[in-house]
Design a protein around this nucleic acid. Sequence first.
DNA 1: CGTGTCCTTACACTTGGAGA
DNA 2: TCTCCAAGTGTAAGGACACG
Length: 365
Amino acid sequence: MSSSLLPKTVREQLDARRRAFLWTGEEKCHGSQCLLAWDTVCQTKEHGGLGVKNLEDMNHCLLLKFVHKLHEPSSVPWKQWFFSYSNLLCSTEDTFLHRLLREELGRYRTITHVLVGNGKTTSFWHDRWMLNTTLADTFPVLFSHRTQPAISVQQAVTRPLDSQLQPRLTRSAAAERQVVIDCLANVHLTEEPDSHMLADLKRSPFTSSGAYRLLRQNGEPATDVASLWSLRLPTKVKFFGWLLHHGRLNTRDYLCRRSIRPPSESYCESCAAVVETDEHLFISCPKVSALWNRLETHPLSIDLRRNARIFDDQDSSPRDVIRRTHADIDKWSCRYRPLSAELQAWKTWVASITVTSHLCNSFTF
DNA sequence: CGTGTCCTTACACTTGGAGA
DNA sequence: TCTCCAAGTGTAAGGACACG
């Protein structure tokens, strides 16, 4: 993946294997077994996904390292060979490196910002160097009047701007030209090479992982689900919460909406004529909320008991739920040793409730 | 209904043979 | 050695379909 772009069919076959492993643990899985679309799974955790790497984007980011190395000041032999008969900003040769550069340069420019030194490796029109956008995007009318397809900042600054434009400009192009000339008056080149940094807030050095992060940043982060992953809970519980956030737990309401169960079976086991939604199952159902308030146990235990009731026809008393929670605390205490004191206190409290609470005898799940 | 799989079709590219 | 052509191969897109 760091040397060539994988064919789409290969990527799809790899994704099919990864998808099947996630949802079934098998080599193949059916669409109906996938609770959430793979695109959503591949979103970052900040954007509501699982943070599984998108192979195509990762492939591009690894290849972008080649493009970045071409922009770096070093004299490795393959770069000397490349520059011996080619221009970084305008290559027409048909070798692997040239094709790679042509295909990836646009993507590279969208995620980098240039700290201009001598201006030699910075595209005047297409790199982001003076503003947060490219000059081609900011001054589209003037850009349409350029005479050379690709010039560096060094070429643009050391020569009159008019020599790189068509002789007759429209009124709006002339206005844009004046703004650009005013901006260029403040540009001073140095002897230092240009620095191509990632276009994030920190202007951090280019890395494949940083490039991937920028490429996958689509829209506003979903702060509610993102905070789920920072909780100190077993991954299994966080995964459960993630499914709950996306409304993909197999509640009766959800199964009914997908026509897996008839509408007559969409009601709560305990509450007559109330549809069993996520919200009802974990919050508003009187029996669940009573247990939830008294016990402060986690919804996964409740859901496991409920599934056992519905799918395996096994009844569970609140005492069973509490016992289950008690056992979970033991499992978690190994994983979270720094919190062992707090977990031990919780375990003691849960045990006391098992003995004393009248709640345990008041109903069954 | 939402999801992934499978099949078909069209297109581009590669390979190998024939002939000039 | 070069050009042309046919067959084979790979790729991508779209739609029908299966499944729970």
